[in-house]
Write a protein that binds this DNA or RNA. Structure first.
Lengths: 249, 249
DNA sequence: GAAAAAAAACTTGCCAGACAAGCGGACAAG
DNA sequence: CTTGTCCGCTTGTCTGGCAAGTTTTTTTTC
């Protein structure tokens, strides 16, 4: 199944994976435009030069300009109107946060992500305890029971674990918590799953883990914000400690 | 100063602002490709069809395909190698987190952002207390003193406030905390500044605020993690309360 | 027959030119 | 002073093409 020419594990380990290509023209132009905007050469609200003007200015074709500007547009830094031009955002700042995970195999990078994840989920648990509706609580309880069922059947239950946590985050009714937690969680789990097949040892369900979950649920049910935070933090730190065992080989 | 033809407040309030344009071909194609990838029609690690193939498949020109694919590339969802093709990321997930702030003037949106900001900065303060080097502490102390100087001179000192907080975040030595905190902080401050000129009343320096800063510094200096978190949380909640006074008109 | 070298076939990166759709200001008519 | 028309400019999209890089096939050579 291994394709010829594909970089194998040895290559990646030696840092010869997807080798660093010289940045493309689009890359350089987009970066330069972004720098010019940040430096104030193109003030917020003003119009960017016309595409053809930029072609002459930067000595590239219109396609290149369009792709570079399209990138900024995608980041919410500029907005274009057909016939009128492309305008710098009023804020002068990109509307989207770019969290680039440069190296997925770097242990320190994973630690940093996990640290942020813990901060977000712990705070979310506290807010969930204070704001959860009766309906939220019912959903969380159902997820908790689904997990218990998985445990009793000796199933891995990774999905049940994920949805349980998700239901808590959603009880914050703060979409930013949901989105960020989703993003981080998916990546951490993906890392663990791809790094080692039998991830159950690290993220899998045990009765001990379930006990931590029950503690979180109890605190949320009783509206105990600090308690929910503490319980969530304890649970996540334990999970991080298991992960650490693996990271250290 | 009001420009003719600009939609005034009544229009915007009635939802008659800049009307929604039909999404461009590039928008639709990029979204469709992203959906196809997420649905598994293009599995992770596999190669995307050649550009000309997609031209025929989606009935668009190559420029359009290139721009759409370039967008996915920008999000880290695909990576292309000249001569070889464009490949779906191994993770099958975008490498960047998109935090879209849909409506900058929505009070609830700002509250949600502030909530996340508090969670991040409080956790960062705790980590900073545990991990700060002697050099970090020296920088933080300098920033704190710079702020005292600003207060004594009756200056607004908004920048000094910002850099003080930044120096704490940087002491976590976790770039994700730095980047995210930066992003959120800039936007919250921008919102306040543009919403009202005399923002000093809400974010400005007073001796009371400075007292809170000193408490954070003391906890970080003594390596007291929970204390630093509590002090930071108290400080930020107070700031949020001042902000709330404004949001409620 | 097998390994090495050369050629061919694709594929992306970039470019030039073109046309339609939409915007903005000028300008004349009422 | 308003209204309608026109014209230049700008973006959105298309077509066609060349250079550079990669993969596959063929040919050559030992």
């Amino acid at each position: 199944m291994a394709k010829a020419g594909m970089p194998d594990d040895r290559d990646v380990a030696a840092g010869r994976g997807p080798l660093d290509r010289p940045p493309s023209l689009v890359d350089k132009l987009a970066q330069r435009l972004q720098a010019d905007i940040r430096a104030g050469r193109y003030p917020p609200g003003s119009r960017l030069p016309a595409e053809q003007t930029m072609c002459a200015l930067y000595r590239v074709s219109r396609a290149t300009v369009r792709e570079a500007v399209g990138r900024l547009k995608h980041d919410g830094l500029v907005a274009s109107r057909q016939g009128a031009g492309a305008f710098i955002a009023e804020s002068g700042l990109p509307a989207v946060f770019r969290l680039d995970i440069a190296d997925f195999s770097d242990a320190q990078e994973i630690r940093n992500i996990v640290e942020l994840l813990i901060a977000v989920e712990a705070a979310a648990s506290e807010h969930a305890a204070r704001r959860r509706t009766a309906g939220d609580l019912e959903i969380i309880r159902a997820r908790l029971e689904a997990m218990q069922t998985a445990i009793d059947r000796n199933e891995p239950g990774v999905d049940e674990d994920l949805t349980f946590h998700r239901s808590i985050i959603e009880a914050t009714h703060n979409p930013f918590f949901c989105d960020l937690s989703d993003f981080l969680d998916q990546r951490v789990r993906r890392f663990i799953r791809t790094a080692r097949a039998n991830s159950a040892r690290f993220l899998g369900l045990t009765q001990a883990v379930q006990g931590e979950h029950q503690a979180i649920f109890a605190a949320i049910a009783s509206g105990d914000g600090p308690g929910a935070r503490a319980a969530a933090e304890r649970h996540l730190l334990n999970a991080a400690a298991r992960l650490e065992l693996y990271l250290e080989r």
